[in-house]
Design a protein around this nucleic acid. Structure first.
Lengths: 112, 112
DNA sequence: TTTATATACATAATTATCCTATGTATATAA
DNA sequence: TTATATACATAGGATAATTATGTATATAAA
């Protein structure tokens, strides 16, 4: 029973940047598997969404890459640049604000 | 300081349906003002997003309309249909699941 | 008086983001 | 030899929202 992927629009960059803030370096396929594991298979990050997003973040200077060959297959590792480290803080705050506002709008505010 | 509207993509229908589950009937302009008030001006619901969304929900049979003339201006009131009342429950659950997964992915899970 | 703002609806054109489908390539299990 | 997993990449299409524009009335400000 997967979640409605439509809702995750706009959150992909934040998810990628946050994963890379917790792991020194990750490669694309690894990111898809990590997302799958964290959400217990509910969110399947598609290649057609992931790779363009990674390329865009790299073009914006938020990610840096190194390539390694492992078992005759090329792996392209991504890691946060200095700017990426700064940006992930902003993106996470944006996400927090977004969730707070959405909970307000939908009356989902948990009684703490 | 407005939130990143990009993140709200996909949540608009849920927001509209939820507001209409709390109010017997609302008209478009009223919905934009209500959203503005709830979020204290952080989320500005644009007409170009709202009206097409209302028309779509009506076309799907989730909303019903009545028109009234108030101070020489036409108001088009929207209210939940029977199907709309059922659908708002599903949409809210989807939103809850989405928020939970996003909090997991971004390590925003509050320590309860 | 005419300009700006608020109210009230609507839609066309553009932009952004994601998904589906497809392609290349290696390794391993069935 | 077929399917599955690993690993990257991109073209084409779908969806949804934004921007811009249009119509129209009422009122406050300049």
């Amino acid at each position: 029973m997967a979640v409605n992927n439509e809702l995750f629009k706009g959150t992909l960059q934040t998810i990628i940047l946050n994963l890379l803030s917790e792991n020194e370096k990750m490669y694309g396929y690894e990111i898809t598997q990590k997302v799958k594991a964290i959400t217990q298979g509910e969110l399947m990050l598609k290649e057609g969404a992931l790779y363009p997003a990674l390329h865009k973040l790299e073009a914006e200077g938020l990610l840096e890459t190194t390539t390694e060959v492992v078992e005759n297959r090329v792996r392209k590792y991504y890691s946060l640049s200095k700017n990426g480290e700064k940006e992930v803080v902003n993106k996470l705050q944006e996400a927090k604000d977004f969730i707070a506002q959405l909970q307000l709008l939908l009356n989902l505010k948990p009684a703490i």
